[in-house]
Design a binder for these strands. Structure first.
Length: 553
RNA sequence: UGCCGAAUGGUGUAACGGUAGCACAACAGACUCUGGAUCUGUUUGUCAUGGUUCAAAUCCAUGUUCGGCAGCCA
């Protein structure tokens, strides 16, 4: 593979920059579940490590006790593993470095490059200036090393209230880069940390913790998203100011934006907390857990990640590309079965009552090794309501009065009459079969325009099916800061129905992919499906040329 | 209008001074016991203007547009 980051890694390897070593890291903050955007980063970081014979660390960037939780740590580890990556023994926590980070801060003070500042948050904002207005130096900027050391120690001891003081790097209040205007590197925050408990009341800021964690771990290439580009001078300044084990190279790439979804953890959390979705793993969510529950495979995500590439251009990727990757993978591996989502009863008037035949059906035409199975056939069947029309439009090849269709793996049938209910709706269709037309039979070669799926009414399994559609109705739900993204949520993103399934589905394992022929890919829900109460999720529909024809009118 | 960055078909990307290619999408056709899959073909592109060069998406200049940055979040 090749992209600008791999090119840089190759070049560094060629120059023996890190002694031939490649070490990357994936550093999530455990304050939410991983999403498809993280998957891009995971594939990048772990992928580079694999390709260049290096290592990739998994590091929890847990420097903010108020938002982080062990639940997220466990979910993150599960998701990364599920995606197919292995960090071996390289599991780290920024919180494990708190002692060392504190020592680094002390050294920075001793170097005269950091000071304790008593400005309130509001005052700090005022002193910082603006992008085009230089900042002002804090009145506390010139405290002595001894005074700063004492104050910082007392911060650590808990002598001051949250927010009363902050440790700042002493850089340049006139810098055109706001991140260099004496950024805060340690703040007082009395929150119970999910790992270190109440041991600390001061916590390092991202800019301070991240570069030093990278250095401590011997990271060679620290890959992050574009918004950190302006932080790079600070990343480098801190590592240059201190005596550190090594100086990793920060490289920025464009985060993934997917059409018809939102990708910010804050917004995803909001939907979870407000009950707009059933949880982080709601199958409509772009989270790894949601995609998994929906029936998405790790291979599909990895192929998708490969296809979208890595650049510094902040674009918008079409979800259709994800769906394509998914269908491509599922087409290869999913067992075909017959299921009817909107049942319409069909009676075969010239087929003996009480008779049952077992017909042979192919499990996967893409994979002969998947073999065949038997499907029961009898006089009363269910077919898809959409496969029948009393008055067909042109180009409708399916069942209508007087027309013939093939029942997949079974007979050719002809529609003879319909039975309607009081409301005038078609309730039952009466057909006759061509007894010689069974697959393999004498007249089975007859050219019939259409083949439809069916299930035998007497043998059918009942199941709940959950049909998912995109969560939002517009390409970029969060594009307009004036408009709440939630107002664009798709009211039809979930439709629940009752389906009739062929009996072989009785043993379907959760998340095992199936293709319901002519409908789409489905899997049993990993939370709600029980052997006696089946629940199937639609992963993604099949491409549908007929639906497209209908849209065209 | 301060700093940093980016601009290649509808979308995502490749081409590293030498034929603008690939994938998705769209469209048309072939095939089909899935209107699926597969196969074939078609449409659409180098932000602009100058310059350097035999030759520029690529190098230079100017401009335009878009994104990011003013948390004691990451």
């Amino acid at each position: 593979m090749s992209d600008f980051i791999r090119d840089m890694v190759r070049e560094d390897l060629g120059n023996n920059k890190h002694g031939g070593r490649v070490a990357t890291r994936f550093p999530p903050e455990p304050n939410g579940y991983l999403h498809i955007g993280h998957a891009k980063s995971i594939c990048l970081n772990f992928g580079i490590a694999q390709e260049f014979n290096g290592v990739c660390h998994l590091r929890m960037d847990d420097t903010n006790p108020t938002t982080e939780d062990i639940e997220y740590v466990n979910a993150i580890m599960h998701d990364v593993r599920w995606l197919g990556f292995d960090w071996k023994e390289k599991m780290f926590y920024a919180s494990d470095y708190f002692g060392r980070l504190h020592q680094f801060a002390v050294e920075l003070i001793q170097l005269g490059k950091a000071y304790v500042c008593d400005l309130s948050p509001e005052e700090m904002i005022r002193y910082r200036g603006a992008p085009d207005v230089p900042g002002q130096e804090s009145p506390f900027r010139n405290r002595t090393v001894a005074e700063n050391l004492d104050l910082f120690e007392r911060m650590r001891q808990g002598e001051y209230a949250d927010g009363a003081k902050v440790l700042r790097a002493k850089i340049d209040m006139n810098s055109p880069n706001i991140h260099m205007r004496d950024p805060a590197i340690y703040r007082i925050r009395r929150g119970h940390h999910y790992r270190t408990g109440d041991r600390w009341c001061i916590y390092p800021m991202y800019d301070f913790a991240h570069c030093l964690s990278d250095s401590v771990e011997g990271i060679t290439h620290s890959i992050c998203t574009l918004e950190f580009e302006v932080h790079r001078p600070l990343y480098d300044w801190i590592l240059d100011a201190l005596k550190t084990p090594c100086h990793p190279q920060q490289i920025e790439f464009a985060r993934l934006n997917l059409s018809f979804t939102v990708m910010s953890k804050r917004k995803l959390l909001q939907m979870v907390e407000e009950g707009l979705v059933s949880g982080w793993d709601d199958p409509r969510m772009p989270t790894i857990a949601g995609l998994r529950r929906r029936g998405c495979t790790p291979e599909a995500i990895r192929h998708f990640a490969r296809r979208i590439g890595v650049t510094k251009y902040n674009g918008l990727t079409d979800v259709a590309l994800l769906e394509h990757s998914l269908r491509e993978d599922l087409n290869r591996r999913a067992r075909r079965v017959m299921a009817v989502l909107k049942p319409l009863k069909v009676v075969l008037t010239n087929y003996p009552e009480g008779k049952t035949e077992e017909l042979e059906a192919v499990n996967n035409p893409e994979d002969p090794a998947a073999g065949t199975r038997q499907v029961p056939f009898s006089r009363v069947l269910y077919i898809e309501r959409d496969d029948f029309m009393e008055i067909p439009p042109k180009k409708f090849f399916r069942l209508f009065p007087g027309n013939e269709v093939r029942l997949r793996y079974a007979y050719i049938i002809k529609c003879e009459s319909v039975v309607k209910n009081a409301a005038g709706e078609v309730e039952e269709v009466h057909c006759t079969i061509d007894p010689e037309s069974k697959s393999g039979g004498a007249t089975s070669g007859r050219k019939i325009k259409s083949t439809i799926h069916w299930v035998s009414a007497a043998h059918a399994l009942d199941a709940e099916v959950r049909l998912y559609d995109r969560l939002f109705t517009v390409e970029q739900p969060d594009a307009d800061p004036e408009r709440d993204f939630k107002t664009f949520m798709n009211p039809k993103s979930l439709e629940v129905g009752r389906a009739k399934l062929e009996p072989s589905l009785a043993g379907a394992q959760p998340l095992e992919p199936y293709q319901f022929e002519r409908l789409g890919y489905f899997c049993a829900d990993n939370r709600d499906s029980q052997p006696d109460k089946l629940v199937f999720n639609r992963t993604v529909g099949l491409r549908d040329a007929w639906a497209k024809e209908m849209i065209k009118g």
